[in-house]
């Protein structure tokens, strides 16, 4: 009897702790969104030229695709409109990942300058806080909508073999791929705890994800490369997997399960690595 009531008490305690921790995280998320919005709109005319930059980038990519398809009918089995969908998914995932990406650069700077102490002495979940310190909703929406519209306009959607189920599963895979890509970038920032600097390593992982995952479709790689880039360095999930599933070129359930497993493994690795990194952290301040 005592054991059962003890177990119930323990369960209640854990539930209330979980609720409290969830509430803490929601408060941090709200504060991050509000604070970043205030920061982004304080000098809001300053960065409007970024729209020009993202739009011109997209125009240059559209010219690139048009020039290629003026010479060939398909690349890696992708017709022009399928390649445009691949570009569209790639751009969505790129902009989504940049919502919180700047936090990684700030983490490197904070560790390099010994400012991380200020965070560690606060009663907040440190990993959650460094991940969502800033959420750039306003600037990402502002910079992404015009170029995304440009791609959507030039794509002949009716020629694509899209079904609701495939698009839905593709979007779920894209979200999982975003999480995995974020973890890869996060892991590449951690050497800063041991070496004092990791900006170039982070840039390498960004570059790798972009070049491997967002330029060449999944079908462009041979089996061995597909395996490596979807397990060891899984940069193909957010765009390659997602667009392949949306276009009905791959088995949606297989890729969904694969993406779920990889995401779970990478999230676990992230937690363990963060704890190890914190143990290595040294600073003379505070």
């Amino acid at each position: 009897m005592h054991i059962i009531s003890g177990l119930i008490q323990l369960k209640d305690m854990k539930l209330s702790e979980f609720k409290e921790s969830l509430l803490d995280r929601l408060v941090i998320l709200k504060a991050s969104i509000v604070y970043t919005f205030q920061q982004e709109t304080a000098y809001w005319t300053n960065n409007w030229a970024n729209i020009l930059s993202t739009t011109f980038y997209t125009i240059s990519m559209l010219i690139f695709i048009d020039v290629i398809y003026a010479n060939v009918d398909s690349v890696a089995g992708y017709m022009r409109n399928e390649m445009l969908l691949f570009l569209f998914v790639g751009q969505i995932s790129y902009y989504s990942s940049w919502l919180i990406h700047s936090n990684l650069r700030e983490l490197i700077e904070d560790v390099n300058r010994g400012n991380l102490d200020l965070l560690l002495v606060k009663p907040t979940p440190s990993l959650f806080y460094v991940t969502f310190k800033k959420i750039k909703l306003f600037s990402i929406l502002r910079d992404s909508i015009p170029p995304m519209m440009a791609i959507a306009i030039v794509t002949n959607w009716s020629s694509l073999n899209l079904s609701f189920v495939n698009v839905f599963i593709g979007l779920v895979i894209a979200c999982l791929g975003l999480i995995v890509a974020h973890v890869i970038h996060f892991l590449s920032t951690l050497p800063v705890f041991w070496l004092g600097e990791s900006t170039a390593i982070l840039e390498l992982s960004e570059h790798f994800e972009y070049n491997v995952g967002k330029i060449i479709p999944l079908e462009g790689y041979g089996f061995n490369f597909q395996l490596v880039f979807s397990t060891l360095i899984p940069v193909l999930i957010s765009t390659g997997f997602a667009s392949s599933v949306m276009l009905g070129k791959s088995n949606p359930l297989l890729l969904l399960i694969w993406s779920l497993i990889i995401t779970a493994v990478f999230l676990f690795v992230r937690g363990v690595s963060w704890k190890k990194a914190l143990k290595a952290y040294t600073s003379a301040s505070s």
Partner: peptide
């Protein structure tokens, strides 16, 4: 290590451009 990362970054760029 930063130098190594920069070098690898440039290599990746060329390798995947040629592959594409």
């Amino acid at each position: 290590l930063e130098i190594a990362a920069s070098v690898i970054k440039r290599l990746i760029e060329i390798i995947f451009l040629v592959f594409f």
